[in-house]
Design a binder for these strands. Sequence first.
DNA 1: TGTATTAAGGCAATCGATTGCATATATAAA
DNA 2: TTTATATATGCAATCGATTGCCTTAATACA
Lengths: 341, 341
Amino acid sequence: MKKGKATIHDIAEKLNITASTVSRALNDNPRISENTKKQVIKMAKQLNYQPNHIASALRSGKSKLIGVLVPTANRNFFSSVVRGIEEIANELDYKVIISQSYEDFEKEVQTVDALLNARVDGIIASIGKNTDSFDHFKKVLDKGIPLILFDRITNELDVSQVVIDDYLGAYEVTKHLIDQGCKRIVHFTSPKKINIYRERLRGYEDALRDAQIPLDSDLIEESNMQLEDGRTSMENILRKGVSFDAVFSSSDYAVMGAMQVLREHKISVPDQVKLAGFGNEPFTSFTAPPITTVDQKSIPMGRVTAETFFELLKSENKKKATHKTVLKPELIIRESSLNKS
Amino acid sequence: MKKGKATIHDIAEKLNITASTVSRALNDNPRISENTKKQVIKMAKQLNYQPNHIASALRSGKSKLIGVLVPTANRNFFSSVVRGIEEIANELDYKVIISQSYEDFEKEVQTVDALLNARVDGIIASIGKNTDSFDHFKKVLDKGIPLILFDRITNELDVSQVVIDDYLGAYEVTKHLIDQGCKRIVHFTSPKKINIYRERLRGYEDALRDAQIPLDSDLIEESNMQLEDGRTSMENILRKGVSFDAVFSSSDYAVMGAMQVLREHKISVPDQVKLAGFGNEPFTSFTAPPITTVDQKSIPMGRVTAETFFELLKSENKKKATHKTVLKPELIIRESSLNKS
DNA sequence: TGTATTAAGGCAATCGATTGCATATATAAA
DNA sequence: TTTATATATGCAATCGATTGCCTTAATACA
């Protein structure tokens, strides 16, 4: 009793049938009669039977585990996506192993390896900023393990992916700033060649172009996009003495840094300089003034990602067609970018 | 080759020895000669052998997985602790399954069950706010699975635990406010009977008492401590018209809400009202003004928790003595609680 | 020289569930 | 009645690694 041991053999014995039958009954195999199934299920309950997933995994080769790899769980966006994935996975009786690469390439490679070793049935990943080689992911594909990417993706891998339309988000937020009368818009971006920053930069540029505002490379600041980097970038701009009337940062953290520096320099937001970020991190809503940003639709992204993933998992070796889903971001306009009315 | 299949049998075959020997060699068993070990290791590398943890787990009963259960990974404190745990676990060749209860009791119960089903070798948990029954954890203990708690703990379970000195943190921050001249200090706390809020309340009360300042229940606001709740609490206080010159909130989020409301009411922080929170969430450092708070020493807590856990894991059924580690918190004084000098 | 130890491996069972193939009734078609 | 066809279940191998016990050979001790 206490031992929490009951196996299918125990059930079989009590019922005077074999373990095979029990196994099939439990898995709702059509070859077993309804009556037997009922008895088995009843006895299982009675003995407080808990299936041993390990044994099942060994034999069937399916661990019912899926690995989710994110740069960091400590970001609203990622943790929300993870939550969406978890919800769907749990419904389907899959367990999720969350692991973090901490934006570190080495760690990312190791982690993928670790997931493989843990025999996950598939991997859902968002790649790190510093990742520029994809052999670790190719290894996953070579092993025939389902892989899909979300948000931070790459074209070097032939896999399905789910992203938001970063280009559109950036275009809209830039256009919004222009509509507010801004003409000299600073842009914070990353030197890393990952898709999201590239697309946002493109959106920024096109919005300017469409408004006939000349691009000025002096207004582009590259950095790692953390809060401190945002501070540095802002200081650089001030030091250079270029004129500007807005900042659109590809990261909420960096724009927060910029806001601090502006405040220290007694430059008023939004009166003198308008600000906009990207990501809709919760803190953007409770700064003074609240910061305009772009919501990345983390919840839908989590769900869509999970759905796409499980479709792939079901189809197994069948369908090969990879698929890219693009979700629409949402512009969240707040005080930091608005003219006083 | 491509199949990524190599097992210990393959290695054995190539070397003309048995799988037992290979297994022992790989596990550095003293019964195997150094020479054989070398050969085995070399061949393993050559065949690109990857141990099948599932098989190993089934036979040995050790999955090398540990479950970490937190209310939410989306909080700096928890994600930092998790990171500390991960680091140590990985060093010891354990994999960590992070799971979240989302402060939901049902979900917490299910999740513990899921971890058990995944055959984790042990569980490290921080309990949800709404948890008031602990049968799910007792089940873990009954199964003889190592369990330890951190931060959000309970005395109803005889397990080792790691916490910070919430009492001391609250005492110090309250004393700090008193030292700044405050005499009417509002306190935000939770109606939930979990240890952290109880202790913080106690620290607050004792600090007042020691300074001969009368306690006033009108100054205590109970809520769920999210940002919105902080807003509501602050508005309640203002509506009640009680006089106050400071707010000490047991949560950074709630104090943020309070700050917003004060701003909306044109009440100046820190001139008219001083503010302090608890938790040292990153955003407290970049609000205007930055908010005084108490750092919970998440990194050390993660490491200590992991160390305590693995000691327990090693000692197995031996040592039973549970142990409570109390870390010192750190008062982080920022502008929100300081008089202009 | 004979017996006790130690060292180095081998053998085979085992962990618990799954599954291809075989078997035994029962029902249906001829 | 006989032969095909389901239907329901049993048998036994299997997944890959681990481990208790046994065997052999070599070294040590009397």
